[in-house]
């Protein structure tokens, strides 16, 4: 199954991780990778895998099917969206595997997963993207 943009990911011994940049001058992180540092305005960035776990910083649920350029499955199921705080790195925006407001809360432990967001209705074949899922059995 294809991934939406291979440049977003890297492999680590623990599994796939998001690939970001880290400024070698001021340690600011970005995602995706970029060549310039938004904090110190320098341009000495190095690739760095981002943490695979973090905590939910904020969240919402996408209630309607977005217009193009969204290419997700035609039959809309509301999906969660949030920012996950990756310690000492950054807050990353992501789809969430959970879309029930009663099961989402700020501070919830989350982990990176790879999920399909588009089935093969469009003829292009199923496509996957990254998402964050509540850590199973985590203390709520």
């Amino acid at each position: 199954m294809t991934f939406v943009d291979d440049s977003l990911l890297t492999e680590t011994p623990e599994g796939p991780a998001l690939l970001g940049s880290r400024c070698t001058n001021c340690s600011a992180h970005t995602f995706p990778r970029q060549a310039g540092c938004p904090r110190c305005t320098g341009s000495a960035m190095e690739d760095v895998p981002l943490a695979r776990t973090g905590r939910l910083w904020t969240w919402t649920v996408q209630g309607f099917r977005p217009k193009p350029p969204y290419t997700g499955t035609e039959t809309h199921e509301p999906y969660g969206v949030g920012y996950v705080e990756l310690a000492d790195q950054l807050l990353v925006e992501s789809r969430l595997t959970e879309s029930d407001p009663d099961r989402l809360r700020i501070g919830l432990p989350m982990e990176l997963v790879i999920r399909s967001f588009r089935d093969d209705d469009g003829g292009g074949g199923p496509t996957r993207t990254f998402a964050f899922a509540p850590v199973t059995g985590a203390d709520r």
Binding site: W59, Q62, Y70, Y83, T129
Partner: peptide
């Protein structure tokens, strides 16, 4: 179009290029 904002097309394709989401997440926090 994400490209107008210097963001990869994946951001729009996967359903994150939606202004209404931002406002929901900002007020939630």
């Amino acid at each position: 179009d994400p490209a107008d904002h210097g963001i990869g097309s994946w951001y729009g394709e996967t359903g994150l290029m939606v202004t209404t989401q931002f406002f929901g997440m900002k007020i939630q926090r």
